[in-house]
Design a protein around this nucleic acid. Structure first.
Lengths: 223, 223
DNA sequence: CACTCAAGTTATCAAACGATTAATAATGCG
DNA sequence: CGCATTATTAATCGTTTGATAACTTGAGTG
C-alpha cells in the first residue's frame, strides 16, 4: 500500500531542468532572501545541491537570472502609450493603467524580491526605479498638467508635482506590500479601490497643483 | 606628524560599551541586513569580534535588542490621544499627527530595519503592524465617520474604509521608503506635502465613504 | 608601587557555506 | 540488447560563520 517511491533520480532535459531551478529559486529567494543557502534551495527543489552548479556557474549568476525575470519580464512597454493617449480622458487612462499595473506586480515573489534587491542596493533595482520615474511618473505629471489646462513644463517636472503623483502610486504599492510583506490586509475588491483612489486624486488635482505652483513661486522669489 | 595612534585597546565602562555596540549594530544591520557577519560588525565598531559575545550571548540576542530599540522605542503613546481629540478639527489633527509620525520614523535605520524584519516575518514586526492598525488606523476611520456625520460603526470598521485610510498612510510611508530604500527622492518640503495630502484626503472623504457604503450594501444585499 | 580584577584580544572550535571532483545511473541509438 | 552519452549524485575542498577558551593589558586600590 505504500506509494512506490518513484526513482529518486529523475532525469530531465537541460532546458526543463534549468527552468525548474529558476522558478524554484524565485520562490525560495522570495521566501528566505538571497542569503538563503544553496543546500536548502536544492532540497526545496528535490535535487542535489551540486546540480545547481551545473546549470548556473555560481550562486550569484542564479540570483542575477532571478532579478532579470522578476524585473524585466514584468514590465509592459505599452503602459507609457496607454498613459499618454489623449484621446481618452485622464481618469479613465489612470484607472486602466493602475488596474493593469497592480495586476502584474501584485505577486508574492515579485514584491518581495523587489524589496530584497532594493535593500541590497542592486543596480538592477535602481534602474527599475529610474525607469518607473521616467516612463510612468514623469509622463503622468505631464498628463495631469495637460488635463488641468496648465502649460507644459519645460524640462523636468517640479519635484513637488512628482511627489504628488507618487502619492497615488504609493497607495497601490503599499497595498501590495501589506499583503505580501506585512502579511495583513485581505485581498480586497482592488479594482473598486483603484477607481476610488484615482477619482479622489483627480478631483483634488487642480487645487493641489495650484498650491504647489504657489509654493514654488514663493520658494524662489527672484526668477 | 603621524597622529599618535591611540592605544589600540580602549577600555570602556560596560554600560557605555554595550550602548556603543547596540548603536553600531543598528547602523550595520540597517545597511547590510541581519545576515551581515559579526566580524564585519566588530570591525565597523573598531573592536574584536569576540567582544560582541561578552555583551550579547548570541547574535540573535543582539538582533532582538536592535528590534526592540527600533520598534518599541519609537512609538509615541500620545498619538492615539492626539488623533481622537475632538476639540480640534480632524484635518488639523491628521496634519499634526502625520508630521510627528513622519518625523519620528523618517530615518535610514528605522525604515530599513523595519523592512528587513518584516521580510523575515519576525513576530515583533507583525505586532507592530497590528498595533498600528488598532491604535492609529482604526481610530482614524472612526474619526472620519464622526467628522462626516456618519453613525459610529458597531464593532470593527469595514475593510474598505480601513483601506481608504491606509491610502493616506501609504503616502507617508512610501515617501520614506523612496528616500532610504530605493535611494531616490530628495528630502523635500515634507510638512507642506503632508498638509496637501491630508487636505486632499479630507476633501474627498465624504464622497469616498459614500461610495464605499454603497459598494458594501450591494455586496451583501440580504442583510 | 605592586597587586587584583575585569575589559579586551588572539587563537581556535565545530558547523555551514559556495564550489569542485569523481562516481553513478538513466536515456537514446545502433 | 549492449553501449556510449550525459544528467545526476555522493563525497569532498577551502572559507567563512557564530561561538568559546585561553591569554593579555589597562585601570583603580591599599
Amino acid at each position: 500500500m505504500t506509494a512506490p517511491a518513484r526513482s529518486a533520480r529523475q532525469r530531465l532535459a537541460p532546458d526543463a531542468r534549468q527552468q525548474q531551478i529558476l522558478e524554484g529559486a524565485i520562490a525560495y529567494f522570495a521566501e528566505f532572501g538571497f542569503d538563503g543557502g544553496t543546500r536548502a534551495l536544492a532540497q526545496h527543489l528535490g535535487i542535489s545541491q551540486s546540480l545547481l552548479f551545473r546549470y548556473f556557474p555560481t550562486k550569484a549568476s542564479l540570483v542575477d537570472r532571478v532579478y532579470e525575470v522578476v524585473f524585466l519580464q514584468r514590465w509592459n512597454s505599452r503602459w507609457q502609450g496607454l498613459l499618454t493617449d489623449r484621446s481618452r480622458p485622464l481618469p479613465e487612462r489612470l484607472k486602466a493603467f493602475y488596474k493593469d499595473y497592480n495586476h502584474s506586480i501584485d505577486r508574492y515573489e515579485v514584491i518581495r524580491i523587489s524589496l530584497f534587491s532594493a535593500l541590497r542596493k542592486e543596480s538592477i533595482s535602481q534602474r527599475y526605479v529610474a525607469r518607473l520615474r521616467e516612463q510612468l511618473i514623469v509622463p503622468i505629471v505631464a498628463e495631469c498638467r495637460a488635463h488641468l489646462g496648465l502649460p507644459a513644463a519645460a524640462g523636468l517636472p517640479s519635484p513637488l508635482e512628482e511627489q504628488l503623483v507618487l502619492s497615488l502610486h504609493a497607495t497601490i504599492i503599499y497595498g501590495i506590500m501589506r499583503r505580501h510583506v506585512f502579511d495583513v490586509a485581505p485581498p480586497l475588491d482592488e479594482d473598486f479601490l483603484i477607481d476610488l483612489y484615482v477619482d479622489s486624486f483627480v478631483a483634488h488635482a487642480a487645487e493641489s497643483f495650484r498650491r504647489i505652483g504657489a509654493r514654488e513661486a514663493e520658494r524662489r522669489p527672484a526668477s
